[in-house]
Design a protein around this nucleic acid. Structure first.
Length: 393
RNA sequence: GGAGGUGUGGCCGAGUGGACAAUGGCAGCAGACUGUAAAUCUGCCGGGCAACGCCCUACGGAGGUUCGAAUCCUCCCGCCUCCA
C-alpha cells in the first residue's frame, strides 16, 4: 500500500534506560517522538491547543507560537458550516486563512455526533447534522469528510467516527465501533494524501476492552498514518478512562503516532504518555481560563475568589507567560471581575503556556527516565476537580 | 401656591388585598467544565433555629381599615414632572 508521501514519525531514543515502573507499579511504554508534517515537525508527546473555529478563543497565532504550541487543532464540522470549505479553499487553504504556519490537525465532526446529540441522525452511510447555527441540514459522509480536510490542506486529517455517549451499553458501543470501522475503511480508500498530510483512524468501543482491541487491530490493518483513541472524554470515571487508555494504546501499532482525543487534565496526559500516547488535545486550558480557573505549579486557582483582590504575586511564579511575567493575581482578578476582555485572554495565554510547559517537562522526563519524579511533583499540585487524580504513584 | 407622579431587600427594578421573605437583572459567595452550540452553566444570596418546617424583622415614617396589607385610607417626610 505505497503512497507518494506521508507523515513521518520517528521514535527518539531515551537518554537513559528509562523503564522504571513509575505509576502504580505498571511497566510503561512512554516514548518521545518526532512527527514530521508538511508544515513542520512536532516533538511528542505534544499537546494541541483547540482552535475549533480556526482560532483559540482570544489568542493570536503569534501568541500561540510564543506560548510554545507546535500544532493546532481545528474542527471540520464548525468550519464547514461557517465560513464553509469553499471559502477557505478560495482563500488559500486553512493555514493561510487562519495565519498559522505550523502543522494543523482537524477533527472530523465525530465528536459533534456526541455533543450535538439531538441535532443529528446517524446511519451507516454517515451523519446528517442539523446546523446548530441555522437549522439547515448537512450531510457528513466518510468520503466527504476526507475530501474536505484535503481541500483545507491540513497536516493531519481524522476519519469520521461515531462517538457514543456514556454510559453506553455493550450493544451501543459495538454498533458505534463497527460503524466507525466501516467508515474508516471508506475514508482510507477515499484518502489521496496528495498534499503530504496524513490520515488518522479512530478507535471506538466505549469501555469494552475487547471491542477496542479488536478495533485497534482492524484499523492497524488499514495502515493509517496514526491512530486515535476516541470516545474517552464523555463523562466516564477516571479509572475507566485509564483502563481504556492502557489497553487500547498497547493494542495500537507502536511505530505510528497515537493520539488520545479530548484529553485532558495534566495528570491524565501524564498517565497516558506513560502508556505510549503521543498526542493530546483538550479545551480545558482555554475554557477554564475563560471561566477564571488557572492551572499553576501549585495547583489550580480560581482567580475570581476574593482572596486574590490584594494578592501582588504572579499567578504562577514558575511561569514565563505574558501574564505571570509582569502582572499580579490582583490585576487579573480585577480584570476578570470587571468583565474586561483582557482577563480571559491573559488567563488563556497562561493556561496554554502551563500545558505546553508541562508537555516539555514530560518530554524531558521521558528522555531522562524521570517520569516518577514528574508524577510525584504533579501529585503535590492538587487538581481539586478530579480528586482521583491526586493519589500518589 | 396648584396639579400629578413616585419611594420595594447592597444597586436597578417587578409586584398593586391572601398562593410574598417578595419575579427579574446586577453585584456578592460557592461549584462545574476533558476531540468547544460554553467569555458558559448550576446552586446560594434578610436574620435565627433542635432548619426540607417554624420563628423574628422587612416593601420611606407613623397611625388606621381588614380575619389578612408591599398592595386600601389618613397624616408626615423625601424625590420627580407640569402649571403659577
Amino acid at each position: 500500500m505505497a503512497r507518494a508521501s506521508r507523515l513521518s514519525f520517528e521514535i527518539l531514543p531515551a537518554t537513559s534506560g528509562a523503564t522504571a515502573a513509575a505509576w502504580g507499579g505498571a511497566a510503561h511504554a512512554a516514548r518521545r517522538g518526532l512527527l514530521t508534517t508538511p508544515h513542520g515537525a512536532v516533538e511528542t508527546p505534544a499537546f494541541m491547543p483547540v482552535g475549533t473555529l480556526g482560532t483559540v478563543k482570544g489568542v493570536t497565532p503569534q501568541e500561540l507560537s510564543a506560548a510554545g504550541a507546535s500544532i493546532l487543532l481545528a474542527n471540520l464540522y464548525h468550519l464547514a458550516l461557517r465560513p464553509g470549505i469553499d471559502t477557505i479553499e478560495r482563500l488559500g487553504g486553512l493555514h493561510r486563512f487562519i495565519g498559522w504556519t505550523g502543522p494543523l490537525l482537524t477533527d472530523s465532526g465525530g465528536f459533534q455526533v456526541w455533543s450535538l446529540g439531538h441535532l443529528r441522525t446517524v446511519d451507516d452511510g454517515g451523519v446528517t447534522f442539523r446546523s446548530h447555527l441555522d437549522g439547515s441540514s448537512r450531510r457528513f459522509t466518510p468520503e466527504a469528510v476526507v475530501e474536505w480536510q484535503e481541500r483545507l490542506g491540513v497536516d493531519v486529517a481524522m476519519t469520521l467516527d461515531e462517538c457514543p455517549p456514556w454510559p453506553v451499553s455493550r450493544e451501543q458501543a459495538a454498533a458505534a465501533s463497527e460503524r466507525t470501522l466501516g467508515w474508516a475503511r471508506r475514508a482510507r480508500a477515499a484518502w489521496r494524501g496528495d498534499s503530504g498530510g496524513g490520515l488518522f483512524g479512530i478507535v471506538q468501543g466505549g469501555v469494552f476492552h475487547d471491542l477496542r482491541e479488536g478495533a485497534a487491530r482492524e484499523l492497524a490493518a488499514l495502515d493509517f498514518d496514526g491512530y486515535a483513541i476516541g470516545g474517552v472524554s464523555v463523562g466516564e470515571p477516571p479509572a475507566e478512562r485509564r483502563a481504556v487508555v492502557e489497553r487500547t494504546a498497547a493494542a495500537l501499532p507502536p511505530e505510528r503516532p497515537r493520539y488520545l482525543m479530548g484529553v485532558g487534565y495534566p495528570a491524565d496526559m501524564l498517565h497516558a504518555a506513560m502508556h505510549g500516547i503521543d498526542l493530546f488535545d483538550c479545551v480545558l486550558p482555554a475554557r477554564n481560563a475563560r471561566h477564571g480557573v488557572l492551572f499553576t505549579r501549585e495547583g489550580t486557582l480560581k482567580i475570581r475568589h476574593a482572596c486574590f483582590r490584594d494578592d501582588p504575586r504572579p499567578v504562577d511564579a514558575g511561569c514565563g507567560c505574558p501574564c505571570c511575567s509582569r502582572l499580579s493575581r490582583a490585576f487579573l482578578h480585577h480584570l476578570v471581575r470587571a468583565g474586561e476582555l483582557t482577563g480571559p485572554v491573559l488567563a488563556t495565554l497562561h493556561n496554554l503556556r502551563y500545558y505546553l510547559d508541562f508537555m516539555a517537562e514530560l518530554r524531558q522526563a521521558i528522555a531522562l527516565g524521570a517520569l516518577a519524579d514528574l508524577a510525584a511533583r504533579l501529585a503535590c499540585a492538587p487538581l481539586p476537580h478530579d480528586p482521583q487524580e491526586q493519589r500518589s504513584p
